[in-house]
Nucleic acid binder design. Structure first.
Lengths: 336, 336
DNA sequence: CTGTTAGCGCTTTCAC
DNA sequence: GTGAAAGCGCTAACAG
């Protein structure tokens, strides 16, 4: 069932049919009678336009690409959901790509999305490499970077104010009497991580607590990293009394390690984690977390991207930073 | 940069270029010299075929559609990840669609994927309505149903043995001395739910425990449902000593309710939940769960679908059922 | 061994 | 008010 079949059936030309179907009947002064006939027949025969053909002709696919480091991570899954919904509301479909947190895979994915002629890309990058993202943008395909980003690079982004998030978490722990506060970080060199570590560092500094390099550990946002670093940290001669985990997965690793050692939270160690999750309140100890506005990040990403797509003229750099909030539960002990 | 530009640049015809690029140099006895020149130029000029044009010509887009009820649910997020990875490994991209667990949305999505000419569809259906899925299959587009399915309908599916999962969970609780075992179910009428409820029912029966309709409650797989039903159940004149939650989200609701009432797990109520999660071991009480082979479901779904795509002749119905396993932790108390 | 050409299904300019 | 025809970028049948 092509537009041709439909035109034949109606005894009209495909041009007329196409015009009616695209709501351009008025523009071409097509008679109401014809219009109605076309619409009725289309419904009757259940005609659906071939979007591939349409895309080729219009050089516009009404498809967006989404690249995330790990769609199984509830943080990204939640963002992906909101992006899909918002995109669909505007007539766009989403091609989902998981980069496995690998730069090389990410680059292949970028190529792929180019070949597939998506109208725009939303990417939560691995974070080490922006060349290919920039290259794509320069080839004319609109890009929005979310979460991890590249300060100083002309790539529009939406991110949380990670610095403030970490700063206030540490300040809170200090207010509860903690002085030996460890930080288990994600990937060093990645903006999100840099900002959080700086927040950690500055909060310590501003409260006249010397920064102990031994208490800053870790190298990625995964669970295993949280586990290993906690085991290491706690076997230290003077272990920390509190830990700041820079991701939801890391804190799961902390939990596993602490449990295995036979210690308790917050009795033996206090914990604050980035990324609120549905289960955060129901953990062995309800966890104090730094929550990001996932829904807002998604909504803004789609809107800004569509804006970029529809107004390619405006080359203004967009940088949006959202304030996170702290949800205080019971994982930090007052030791004053 | 089209194939035309490339051909012009090389002083060759687009046919030759196309053939080399598609690895058909041998078939057409194209000289090695020409071949090499084409390949080199393609790399040099960073030529990438336009997949939209290719798709139109070949009536094959190398794209799969994935419809899930809720991509933010870690169960589906995890499946989606494995599907995306496996599909990509075979050269396919994935269009992600979230049906919001609504039949109407699901139907729109099905239409959309048809318009977009995906080569195949993997769908975790809402579960109430199979007509449109069947219609699509009959229109010639291969479909794989996963998770919830439609017994007796000619739609290939991959699912867990939910009956056995529930049966063994209940049997285990009985072995620990429980007799008043409640079941908080998901959407009634949905295959997954029916099978689990039947397993619950039969296990009770086989152990000579009368089924009490008051102890079977709930109407969807969400957290809120788990919460409400638990509150209701526990305010009963003779509350259950154990609860079987038919989804990961439901058990989160149970946890919230039990906490609010001021009771403890497993001291006051025991709990077994479907769907193992990364956090299951770290909850207030490490939770005993029924684990499904998410990776295997994903892998099989992609392989079977590609099989269907490549061998449309074989119309054999595929029905694959995977055994779940029980992970015993500490959420069930022995009251013997 | 390589080139010419006919579409895939659609939108839109130009013509009447 | 409507239609004919060009062409989006690609593949493959046919021709040599």
């Amino acid at each position: 069932m092509t537009i041709h079949d439909l035109a034949n059936y109606l005894g009209l030309s495909i041009a007329t049919v196409s015009r009616v179907l695209n709501g351009k009947a008025k523009d071409y002064r097509i008679s109401d009678a014809t219009s109605r006939k076309v619409l009725d027949a289309a419904r009757q025969l259940n005609y659906r336009p071939n979007r591939i053909a349409r895309g080729l002709k219009l050089t516009r696919t009404e498809t967006l690409g989404l690249i995330v480091p790990d769609i199984a991570n509830p943080f990204f899954a939640s963002i992906a959901k909101n992006i899909e919904l918002e995109a669909r509301r505007h007539g766009y479909s989403l091609i989902l790509c998981d980069s496995l947190d690998e730069t090389e895979t990410e680059n292949e994915l970028l190529q792929l999305l180019w070949e597939r002629k998506v109208d725009g890309i939303i990417i939560a990058p691995v974070g080490y490499h922006y060349q290919n993202i920039l290259a794509l943008k320069n080839r004319g395909i609109p890009v929005m970077v979310i979460d991890r980003h590249f300060p100083g690079i002309a790539l529009p982004f939406i991110a949380s104010d990670n610095y403030t998030g970490a700063y206030s978490a540490v300040e809170y722990m200090i207010s509860q009497g903690h002085k030996r506060i460890a930080c288990i970080q994600g990937m060093p060199g990645v903006s999100v991580n840099i900002a959080r570590v700086k927040g950690y560092h500055d909060a310590l500094n501003d409260h006249h607590i010397a920064f102990d390099p031994k208490l800053l550990a870790g190298q990625d946002f995964g669970e295993k990293n949280g586990y290993i670093q906690t085991r290491l940290l706690m076997s230290n001669s003077s272990p920390p009394t509190a830990i700041l985990a820079l991701s939801n997965l890391i804190s799961l690793g902390v939990l596993r390690a602490i449990g295995e050692i036979g210690l308790g939270i917050p009795d033996d160690v206090s914990l604050v984690s980035f990324d609120e999750q549905p289960y955060s309140a129901f953990l062995s100890t309800p966890m104090t977390t730094i929550e990001q506005r996932k829904d807002e990040i998604a909504r803004l990403a789609v809107h800004s991207l569509l804006d970029l797509i529809n107004n390619p003229a405006e080359k203004r750099a967009m940088e949006m930073v959202l304030k996170p909030s702290m949800i205080i539960r019971k994982s930090v002990r007052n030791i004053l």
